[in-house]
Nucleic acid binder design. Sequence first.
DNA 1: CCGCATTTGTACGTATGTATG
DNA 2: TCATACATACGTACAAATGCG
Lengths: 135, 135
Amino acid sequence: MTINPRSHTPVYVQLAELVRARIESGDLPVGSPLPSEARLGQEYGIGRDAVRMAIALLRSEGVVSTSKGHGSWVREQHERAKVELTSGSSAIVRMPSSRERREMDLDEGVPVIEIRNPKGEVTVLPGDQTELIRP
Amino acid sequence: MTINPRSHTPVYVQLAELVRARIESGDLPVGSPLPSEARLGQEYGIGRDAVRMAIALLRSEGVVSTSKGHGSWVREQHERAKVELTSGSSAIVRMPSSRERREMDLDEGVPVIEIRNPKGEVTVLPGDQTELIRP
DNA sequence: CCGCATTTGTACGTATGTATG
DNA sequence: TCATACATACGTACAAATGCG
């Protein structure tokens, strides 16, 4: 599979699809490192911008994680703690602010769950580690 | 307020904070257009990269929306439909795939709620238009 | 309806900073 | 110490969507 620079589909989207396919096929299992940006760019003959945008796209979907100086890897799904939505409570979901993401140590592409109990007290939970249940 | 290129805080984060402050102060009310990328770059004496990254950051938090050829504007919060989490059901949250985002017409920075009922049937709801409740 | 200015999107380049191992 | 890899930030150019005259 190659990339067509003249396609109506942007180069970076094409690359993201290729990498996604490699992940779903098992070629890149959970936890495994992605090729470096430089390597992907060379392999597919595309610029660094396109490579970085492709990885950013996958990161925004919670598919991969990246850290500086280390690289990107296929993100493993956390075990989800079961949290009961108690009577009279409500929950909304949203993306965290930069500050919340830092303080709660959330990866990119991870939403938060905001639970409000009948007293009006609010709890914010990491969206990738939580399952809301009603027994 | 100005931007310090030699700060340990990246230029684009500084700009995002400035724009966020203008929004929260009411200077940029809901629905109002942000200055164009070119204008922001000129005003603060920074490159287009930094401007685009700042706006992308706010977009990823669901604060603003952008459309090609038009510009960015302060995103209005949707009215949230109250959805009851029925007995025996559970809910998880995650970011949508590109395809889901397209098909459900979701803005960037909007998660989805996946509800599974006791029969195992799954419903996917837009995270910015839904409030889960338990009466 | 057409053309034009504006605006964002994509894609390339370079350079330098910083974290990792 | 050093090579590697990503992060930030500047530049350029052209494509594509929008809206207005």
